[in-house]
Design a protein around this nucleic acid. Sequence first.
DNA 1: CATAGTTAGTTGTACAGTCCAACTTACTTA
DNA 2: TAAGTAAGTTGGACTGTACAACTAACTATG
Lengths: 242, 242
Amino acid sequence: MAGEGRAEGSGKSRQLDFPRPLTTVDVVIFTILDDSLQVLLMQRPAGEGEPFPLSLALPGGFVDVTKDRDLAACAARKLREKTGVTSPYLEQLGSWGSATRDPRGWSATHAYFALIPADASVLANDARWFPIRGGRLKDKLAFDHGDILATAIQRLRNKVEYTSLPAFLMPAEFTLPDLQRVYEIVLDRPLEKSAFRTRILSADMIEPVAKMRRGPNRPAQLYRLRKGRDPVYFVRTFNPPE
Amino acid sequence: MAGEGRAEGSGKSRQLDFPRPLTTVDVVIFTILDDSLQVLLMQRPAGEGEPFPLSLALPGGFVDVTKDRDLAACAARKLREKTGVTSPYLEQLGSWGSATRDPRGWSATHAYFALIPADASVLANDARWFPIRGGRLKDKLAFDHGDILATAIQRLRNKVEYTSLPAFLMPAEFTLPDLQRVYEIVLDRPLEKSAFRTRILSADMIEPVAKMRRGPNRPAQLYRLRKGRDPVYFVRTFNPPE
DNA sequence: CATAGTTAGTTGTACAGTCCAACTTACTTA
DNA sequence: TAAGTAAGTTGGACTGTACAACTAACTATG
């Protein structure tokens, strides 16, 4: 019987005969829902030998070397399976690996983070949105997923200070005050209206559509993302608190 | 005979009985030498079954599940083995994994990047510094190490625009013009002197020592890094080109 | 010993973009 | 018609960079 994760010991692959860590991919999927930043979580299965049974965890799982061409494809697949979203903002967050993070043995996970508009997703029925209040999640998560999520929140907040990332959280059409509100939700602080408008409009990342959002007061211009636009990097952050 | 990277198929680990990718860690180590950004590379061994024999490659190798507590420890170990440096700036760069990047099978590498002062390192005798001119390396590298290095260079340049990272490339004592020169080498463009000084000095990241650097002209104040300082994030980039 | 040369470091004006606050505009509702 | 509200604009204060000219401190040279 071979040891755990041990490769065959013959021929020219002789030097590969040592135990291999488990390899997984996890995805931190954010959206804006109910005026709050939310993250997609699943409940762990309860089967025999399953670690963290019934705990909440990030969507993810083992890399399937027969199906997954590469890590990004694996992450995109998991995102698609859980939300139906096929062309989101998806970037690599980092990787976490240690002897102890998974009780089944030495394991390493490759974490991605995705931004999607809530209205574009159809959730798998074992997945649910959980709100992030005050920059953190209430619940404890399985494995080191709490650390991974905290890193993702920090990375998101950081980038929102000087990029157009929140645009990927917006529905197809939105107003500038909508967009500003999303920035404020993520950063958890108010931004200055006129400076915000100047910055966004001069970034050439959105374009007006020939429609207005009507409501109980002055109508607002609707915009949409310019197609195929990469995120914009501003040369200043929004003025930081204190 | 067990399959490649296949775990045992009994008891409660039943669900782990599938092939595992190879897991490696690679480190992109930068320094400043001869007025140029340089990266540490090794020559691949020529043994039978070795991929990319005699090609240049980043220092790295398989995770040893019996010796490495976690990924960062593994990266720190490789850095130490090749340079003798024990407390550098070390951050995770990302991970690369695919079916094709290593001819020996599905593999994933966890890449780190490190900044060290050239004068603090004693190289292993199979390692050498290679200059990066015009933002790229002349030579082709093994595996996808060319991609990894390109990503590292881009990340470094990006961060140098708005952080104090170059401070970690400096020797123990240095002058402000020294530091500015390092910024300029990494960014490959000149910076404005007075704005540079204002920014660095108000960041409170360095402190003067009671010595001057003497030379053939006006002496310059020597500084050192404040101890235990994390990198500083500026709220603006240096004014970008064009 | 004076002067040229070189690099360190400072100063001043222009400019860009944010901050802050007040303002105008366009709509609904009472 | 007036009050209320959110969208969007305007203007002055402030902060920090850009650019350029300046002063300071040293060495080398004739």
